[in-house]
């Protein structure tokens, strides 16, 4: 039995999915959500095998939800918008249904879902996927982090710095820090390079927070941030930092 969840803020949009799903014998709808927050909470509590996900929703959009729930769930996007990079979804989202869609198209999506659930999930990190789906020239406005069943939303201008820790990154903001499963390279790529600098192999700082830079060892320096935090700066990082500071 495939346990499915429907996430859409419009009642009628959920209605048609419910109707199509009812005629699939091996699928059971275990729940519905009307916004991104609920969806993330529901997924971590009930662990469905499959979710149908709208893109434009209150609280968190479909991309953010996808990023937070990981890829061990089959995701089918259902949206009226066709401009999102479908290429990226070919890699990890199982399918992309454009509203309105007919029963036949829906069955094609379900066949893909069964095939995907049959084999094991591809190991594409959801965060990398989100980066790939971002339109060129546009950078992330905010970062989302899941903490148990809670979701934190961090506007990027409130990010002080980020630090790589094994497979995770620690996002430091206003004296707190949040762990997120993502590489620092992929984080760095999603952010505006004019505002966030990779000052070290394991550190990324918000340029606006840098108060001054002090020598540390022969080759390295320390960036002192406005909240007093100290971030190591490598030689290559210092060159990048100086370039950007010079521009201001």
């Amino acid at each position: 039995m495939i346990r499915a969840a429907i996430v859409d803020d419009e009642e009628l949009a959920r209605q048609i999915l419910r109707e199509y799903l009812n005629s699939e014998e091996d699928v059971q709808v275990i729940g519905e959500s009307t916004n991104g927050f609920d969806a993330v909470k529901f997924v971590s509590e009930r662990k469905p095998d499959l979710i149908f996900l709208d893109v434009q929703m209150p609280k968190l959009d479909g991309f953010e939800v996808l990023e937070l729930i990981g890829t061990d769930i089959a995701v089918v996007f259902v949206t009226a918008y066709d401009q999102y990079a479908m290429k990226a979804f070919d890699a990890a989202a199982v399918d992309y249904l454009l509203k309105p869609f007919d029963a036949e198209r829906f069955r094609v999506a379900m066949q893909r879902v069964r095939r995907r659930l049959g084999e094991k999930m591809q190991a594409v990190s959801a965060s990398e996927l989100k980066n790939a789906a971002q339109p060129p020239g546009q950078y992330a406005q905010r970062l989302v982090v899941k903490d148990g069943t809670r979701v934190h939303v961090i506007p990027v201008d409130q990010l002080d710095y980020a630090e790589a820790q094994d497979d995770y990154i620690a996002l430091h903001t206003g004296g707190k820090s949040y762990l997120k499963q993502q590489t620092i390279t992929s984080l760095s790529e999603s952010l505006d390079p004019g505002r966030f600098v990779r000052v070290h192999r394991s550190f990324l700082v918000n340029l606006e927070r840098v108060r001054n830079i002090e020598p540390y060892t022969k080759d390295t320096r320390l960036a002192i941030l406005s909240n007093g935090a100290q971030v190591p700066v490598s030689r290559a990082g210092f060159v990048r930092l100086k370039e950007l500071m010079g521009e201001r």
Binding site: E10, L12, A13, A80, L98, K99, P100
Partner: peptide
């Protein structure tokens, strides 16, 4: 707005059966 159109058509599609 085409999205308004597509979303409305989707609503109609849902209503046809119920």
């Amino acid at each position: 707005n085409p999205h308004f159109l597509f979303n409305s058509l989707n609503s109609i599609s849902a209503l046809t059966s119920v």
